[in-house]
Design a protein around this nucleic acid. Structure first.
Lengths: 138, 138
DNA sequence: GTGTCTGCAAAGAATTTGCAAAGAC
DNA sequence: GTCTTTGCAAATTCTTTGCAGACAC
């Protein structure tokens, strides 16, 4: 889907600035504010920092972006993935890790422990790894 | 163990300011910087903000404190618990959730999936809940 | 046309730094 | 006595705000 569509569907008006910001996020997937600013301004350096802040803010409120805190690096990253998912931290970078099976496993486990009557709205696993050598075998 | 001991064992020198900060953290368990400052200065208002920042920083480096980002509230909390553990977010508050069984379950699960050859250094689950009604039964 | 969004410049908040005096060991 | 830590004040960095003009619909 195209950025224009996505922004419109989220109930926001289309502006060139919003399109640039969204497209940058589609490229970067995860990025801290300083990277986003650099990247946006490299595409259109008329867009000011305050505008970028405001746009990111409105995107978060409209649920177009989410937020991850990178534990090791100590700063927050915007994330283009808004559906429930997990994260892998490796050095400075963040990878999305989509795994409903894992979420369900944890949910079941918790239900059988002390959480039977608790309304769990979100489960997020943060996996910190040292060297990335993901096996290709499923 | 007493705060003096703990600070010394971490390889830091004892100062009255460090003792106050550590004792405040023993009380608060989890707290954002503004709460810590307020609480420290209520015990000794000669301790300046810059000192508090420096102390928290040195405590983190010495592994006396850890750091949690509260997703819902959007700010970071210092945490007196440094051993591997999980977190429960409920409204504005953070609860520690120690559960080695859960960690091990996830570790096993990941090992059997794509992570066989990956060196996982840390697994942290963040559970966001709506109403806290923890069952007392084990 | 109406209401929202942007750029600008300035304000405000949060955090860090340099330095001299005080303190820990 | 030596090296580290603290308080102070100022600097820096990060983020938000108010306003007038521009733009989306």
């Amino acid at each position: 889907m195209e950025s224009t569509e996505i922004i419109k569907n989220a109930g926001l008006k289309i502006t060139p600035q919003r399109k640039v910001v969204y497209e940058v996020m589609m490229e970067l997937r995860h990025a801290a504010i300083d990277e986003i600013i650099k990247c946006v301004q490299s595409k259109d350096n008329e867009i000011t920092i305050s505008t970028i802040y405001r746009i990111l803010d409105s995107f978060c409120k409209a649920n177009l972006l989410s937020f991850v805190f990178h534990h090791e690096v100590g700063k927050s990253y915007y994330d283009i993935t808004v559906t429930e998912h997990h994260h892998i931290f490796e050095g400075e970078s963040i990878l999305d890790y989509m795994d409903e099976g894992l979420t369900e496993l944890i949910r079941q486990y918790l239900k059988e422990k002390n959480f039977a009557s608790v309304d769990i709205s979100r489960i997020q696993v943060q996996i910190t790894i040292n060297n990335l050598k993901l096996n290709s075998k499923k």
